[in-house]
Structures are given as structure tokens and as C-alpha cells.
Simulated scan of single mutants.
Amino acid sequence: MNMQRLEKYNFKNKALTLVSFLFVLFFSSCEDTVTLDLETGETKIVVDAEIIWQKGTTGNEQTIKISKTAPYYNNTTPKVSGAQVRIENKNGDIFTFNETGPGLYVCTNFVPVINMDYTLYVTAEGQSFTAVEKLTSVTPIDKVEQNIVPDFGGEDIIELTFYYKDPADEVNYYLTDYKSGFLLFPEYELTNDELFNGNQISTRFSDEDKMKPGSIVEITHRGVSKNFYNYMNLLLEVYGGSPFSIPPGNIRGNIVNTSDSNNFAFGYFRLCEADKVSYVVK
């Protein structure tokens, strides 16, 4: 069906806005250096905690990244070392994440179980954080097709379409990302099955400028919870960029500071089953 509620986000509009703004600054003052005073406010912990179980794998190795917010003009993101990180499932099984590099915490014996509740515990820089989420399943990608279609200007472009069957007996939410060498940043799509529950879904992707024969497009299709779907929807509408960058406007995820409720962390603890396809454009 082609009735899906679908939203796609990328960096193109943001980049064009930035270029236009810089263009105006350049021609309005060729002699003066203009520096914008962009403050980040209070420094906060950022927890990038995606547990992703790719179909066909054990899902035993998982990674969590911990960093801090940084001033806008900083070229690097401060990493948080020395944290204690673990996940516990509702059965009481504990999975410990050990630091393998600055701010990089890895577990090699994680056990993913669909619909299992998991709790994340993080202790970093004297603060304790926790979050609870359920591991959400995803229906597999059935096939990927390639077609030539006209764009808005009438020029022929390459379009990829991938198909999957939405389960009829449950409400489903999906997050898909597209990565390729011709994309500076991934492109994201959010989908829910409000209008097409139980039907085959077809989702399209194209890039009128750069996708050519020989390009490799990596499609990662996730099942996500309703709460994470709503968080992503808000985040992408406001920011229009990468959902795993530091969000503006103090958009809160599900990570709670149990030491000081006002000093929340950025990020969202999510557990997703995913199907991944690498497609070579013909």
C-alpha cells in the first residue's frame, strides 16, 4: 500500500539554510569577522544507548557511548570515561558493559529477548542514571526493487523501494535509516501502521543528485516502541538532523537522573530488533 504515514528527514534543508545565512554575512561585511555567541548552557551527560539486534545474529555484542555536551564551536565531543554501565532484564540477569576506549562501553554476552523489559543503569561523574524499555521486534524486509522514475523537474532518477509485511495483530512503529558513501549523513524515516495495519508496506528512497549505478545503499529497518517513535518524531521535527546528536531545546528522552531529577541526561535508551540490507545500485 502507499497510504503509510511516513516522514523522512535529512540535512539538506539545514545545509541550504546555513549556506544562505553565511552568504548574507559575507556580503554584508567583508571586512569584519562575525562570530555568533552560541552557548550550550549547562553541561550535560549524553547517553547513546541503542541495543540493536540484527536478524540472523546472536546480538551478544552491544555498545553504549557516553559523552558530554560541548560548546558549539568545539570540534570534538568530550568523552566520559570511568563510568559504570550495566543492563538488567526483568528476570534479574545482569549484563555489564566494560570501557574499551574513551566513552565507549561494550558488552559481549548480552541476551536479547523480544518483548523483554530491560533496565539501564549508568553511574558517571558522581551521578546515577536509569531508564526502562522493552525490546521491540521488526518484520523482515521481503525484497528491494529498483526503478527509474521522474523527479519534480521531469528528470529521470533512480528510486529504490523496499517491502515488508506489517503484522495484523499488533500496533507497530518503525525507524529506518539509509547510509551510503554519497550521503554526508544518514537519512531517516519514521513509519507507523495506523493506516495500513496488516498490509504490505512499500517504502521509497532516492537521491536525485548522487545515487548512481555501483552505489551501495545500506538500509537498516528497526522496530521501535511507541514512546521512542514519539521522541524521534519530536526530535526530528525540531532539529531536522541526526537523531543521535545532542538535541536542542532540552528535549528529554527516557533517561532519568536518580541523584538529581533536574539534572537529566540527553539520549534515549532503546532496544530494537532490526533487519539490514546492503543494496548495490544497478
Rank of each mutant, 00 (worst) to 15 (best):
Q4E: 15
Y9Q: 09
F11P: 08
K12F: 07
K12Q: 13
K14I: 14
A15I: 14
L18G: 12
S20Y: 10
V24A: 09
V24G: 06
F26L: 15
F27Y: 12
S28L: 15
S28W: 08
S28K: 09
S29I: 03
S29P: 06
L38S: 08
E39P: 07
E39R: 13
G41R: 05
E42S: 13
I45N: 01
I51Q: 03
W53S: 09
W53M: 08
W53K: 07
G59M: 00
G59T: 00
T63H: 03
K65T: 15
S67V: 04
S67C: 05
P71I: 00
Y72E: 08
T76R: 08
T77I: 14
T77S: 10
S81C: 09
V85A: 01
I87N: 01
G92S: 07
G92C: 03
N98H: 11
E99D: 04
L104Q: 11
L104H: 09
Y105A: 01
V106F: 05
C107K: 06
T108L: 14
N109E: 12
F110S: 00
V113G: 04
I114W: 07
Y118A: 00
T119R: 13
L120C: 01
V122A: 01
A124M: 05
G126K: 09
S128Y: 14
F129V: 01
T130Y: 14
E133I: 01
E133C: 10
E133R: 13
T136C: 13
S137E: 15
S137V: 10
P140K: 11
I141W: 03
K143A: 15
K143N: 14
V144N: 07
F152R: 15
G154W: 02
E159C: 14
L160I: 04
D166C: 09
A168R: 08
A168D: 11
L175N: 06
Y178R: 02
S180I: 01
L184D: 11
F185A: 11
F185W: 08
F185S: 12
Y188N: 04
N192P: 05
D193K: 04
F196R: 09
N199I: 11
N199V: 08
S202P: 04
T203W: 03
R204D: 14
R204A: 11
F205R: 02
E208P: 00
E208W: 09
M211K: 00
M211F: 03
K212P: 00
I216G: 00
T220P: 07
H221F: 01
R222L: 09
G223V: 04
Y231W: 08
M232Y: 08
L235C: 08
V238L: 12
Y239T: 00
G240H: 02
S242K: 11
F244K: 14
I246G: 02
P247L: 00
P247S: 07
P247Y: 04
G249V: 06
N254K: 03
V256E: 07
N257W: 06
D260E: 10
S261N: 10
E273H: 06
E273K: 05
V277F: 11
S278A: 12
Y279H: 08
V281G: 05
V281W: 02
